[in-house]
Amino acid sequence: MIAALALTIGVLASAGPALAQSAASDGQKLAFDRGKGNCLTCHVIKGGDLPGTIGPELKNIKSKYPDRNDLVAIVTDETKRNPQTVMPPFGRNRMLTEQEINAVVDFLQTL
């Protein structure tokens, strides 16, 4: 029993970076999807095609937003922080689920 528990913990621990990488990959797909996240409509993102320039270029995100929760809040509903923003409230309007927002944030933190 203890050996099985130790093995399970070991497997889960080693899967951590792989799961994070998978979430970031899923987040990139959402961010680049013109029908879902649609981040490229307003933002330049490395690797994205035909970006817009309404919003800031998305780069050095982890250094700009070291607290991940700030970035989640921005994607969820930036109007709470900045009522004049043109950033769509992806969470409040249910354009993205909480899981999808977290995946997008995982991706943005790799930029």
Rank of each mutant, 00 (worst) to 15 (best):
N60G: 13
R92I: 04
P83T: 02
K29I: 08
T76K: 03
V44E: 13
I74G: 00
N69S: 15
Q84C: 05
Q28N: 11
S22E: 14
I54V: 14
C42G: 03
A73I: 00
R94N: 09
E78D: 13
V75G: 09
A18D: 04
H43E: 11
V44Q: 10
K36W: 05
S22C: 04
I74W: 01
I45W: 01
K80Y: 00
L96C: 05
H43M: 04
K36Y: 00
V86S: 09
T53I: 07
D33R: 07
A18Q: 13
T97E: 02
K64P: 06
P56R: 10
V75H: 03
P51T: 04
L96W: 02
C42H: 00
N93T: 09
V44I: 06
A73H: 00
T53G: 09
S25L: 10
G35H: 08
E57P: 10
Q21R: 11
R68A: 15
R92D: 04
D67K: 12
E100V: 13
D49I: 13
G91N: 06
L19D: 11
L58W: 06
T79R: 09
D49L: 14
D33A: 07
V86E: 11
T53L: 12
G48A: 15
I61D: 02
D70Y: 10
A18F: 14
F90I: 05
T79V: 01
F32A: 01
T41K: 04
E98R: 14
I45P: 02
K80W: 03
G91A: 03
Y65P: 03
P66E: 03
F32W: 13
T85L: 06
H43Q: 02
Q28P: 05
S14C: 09
V86M: 14
P56F: 08
N82T: 10
T76D: 02
L58Y: 07
N93S: 11
S63V: 12
D77T: 00
K59H: 15
D67S: 10
D49P: 04
G35N: 14
D70W: 07
P51S: 07
G47M: 10
V75S: 06
L96G: 09
Q21K: 14
G91E: 08
M87G: 08
Q99F: 05
Y65C: 08
V72L: 12
L19N: 10
P83Y: 02
L19V: 15
L71E: 04
P66Q: 00
G52C: 06
N38P: 04
K80M: 07
V86P: 00
E98L: 12
G27E: 12
T53P: 00
K36L: 09
G27A: 05
K62Q: 15
F90R: 07
I45C: 00
L19K: 08
P88L: 11
L40S: 11
M87D: 11
A31W: 01
S14W: 15
Q84D: 10
L58T: 12
P56A: 15
G48C: 13
A23I: 04
G55Y: 01
G91R: 03
G35F: 11
